[in-house]
């Protein structure tokens, strides 16, 4: 069972981060964060960017943990696959959430 978790964890973290950021985007638009100023940017942009960077950090840690001798799988095969799916999670977070820094927010 632990090995199954190791294989699924990377994409699962991505899915949570993706849903959370999309949810945050909805809430932020509903409460008008796009028009609140924070350090020269909109509060919305700051909050979403922070959430994105935090997700990236969590996934980077996940990949490192899957590599580690202590938490990584004892089976070479599962180790290899789980590291691959861990990278999938990290790359997917980078790829699917980068719009937080480039596109218009609530239009």
């Amino acid at each position: 069972m632990k090995d199954l978790v190791r294989i699924l964890i990377g994409p699962l973290v991505w899915l949570s981060a993706f849903s959370a950021v999309y949810g945050l985007h909805g809430v932020a638009c509903a409460f008008g964060w796009a028009d609140i100023d924070a350090w020269g940017l909109s509060l919305m942009r700051v909050a979403l960017t922070a959430a994105w960077l935090a997700s990236l950090a969590v996934l980077a840690v996940t990949v490192a943990v899957l590599h580690s001798r202590r938490f990584g799988s004892p089976s070479g095969f599962v180790r290899g696959v789980s590291i691959m799916t861990g990278w999938v999670g990290l790359m997917a977070t980078l790829w699917t959430l980068f719009p937080v820094v480039v596109t218009s927010t609530c239009q």
């Binding site: 993706f18 950021v21 999309y22 985007h25 909805g26 638009c29 997917a92 790829w95 699917t96 959430l97 980068f98 719009p99 937080v100 480039v102 596109t103 218009s104 927010t105 609530c106 239009q107």
Partner: peptide, 15 residues
């Protein structure tokens, strides 16, 4: 849906 929301899903759809 706002363009940023669409952009997330557009990115995921290409990925």
């Amino acid at each position: 849906i706002p363009h940023m929301g669409l952009a997330f899903f557009s990115a995921a759809s290409t990925l």
